[in-house]
Amino acid sequence: MLPNYASPVEKLWYWTFRLVCVLVLVFLMSPLLAIIPLSFSADSFLVYPIKSFSWRWYGEFFGNGEWMHSLKNSFIVAPAATLLATVLGTLAAVGLTSSNFPGKSLLMTVLISPMVVPVVIVGVGAYLFFSPLGLTNNYLGLILVHAALGVPFVVITVSATLSGFNTSLIKASASLGANPLLTFRKVVLPLIAPGVVSGALFAFTTSFDEVVVTLFLAGPEQVTLPRQMFSGIKENISPAIAAAAAVLILFSTTLLLTLEWLRGRSERIRTAKA
């Protein structure tokens, strides 16, 4: 990148710039890299250096009723919220991109707003509104609000995929005698699938990582994994948290790789079309 006739000042600037960038990337990765080894420490405190290796804290995490209960709850709430957000969000995105109608941009702004409204306000609002309806301390209330928080991501990703969608395919399908439902199922959905799936992944992590709304809406029965970690960090931070963190990092790495693979796939489809 740097030509060999560069002056010393230019060289210095170039290497300083690179150093800064590398340091920022180190800053971004350091917490993840720091906590994983500690989960294998036999020590009862989360401190370096690690004296001996052990699976003890993983045993603690996977053998403990509270942690497992919260993990189970997260795997009840997040998929349900994801399903709801994905179905409603995809339909809405199809509607929003198919035609112009008055108030469309305002509607889009409203549909995206759960992303920017402070979560505490969503939590307190839902708590005060849902408690007379009996929707606090149960799964349904939590799933509904988590789905609302995940909706913007689905709407954004699916709309983005649809904006590159060639609408003459729909016309072709219709001219060949398919009804709109069949066209959607056989033509539109397979082509926008990468967008739908990545929106769903965003919605899933939103719910899977959500703690503030859960603080307000969940009873002791509905404690989710982040909620359990929240009280764990607040009360006493034990290495079982490091084990939980390591499991979650592994999980998010899997999600990220899936997403990157999907992105690559949809890019290939787009370039193949062009």
């Binding site: 917490p31 899977f208 990582d209 948290i241 979650l248 998010s252 990220l256 990157e260």
Partner: peptide
Amino acid sequence: VLLPFWTSVLVRVAA
């Protein structure tokens, strides 16, 4: 950049 972005906020705070 993306890996920390996808990692749970609570994991990062704990770390």
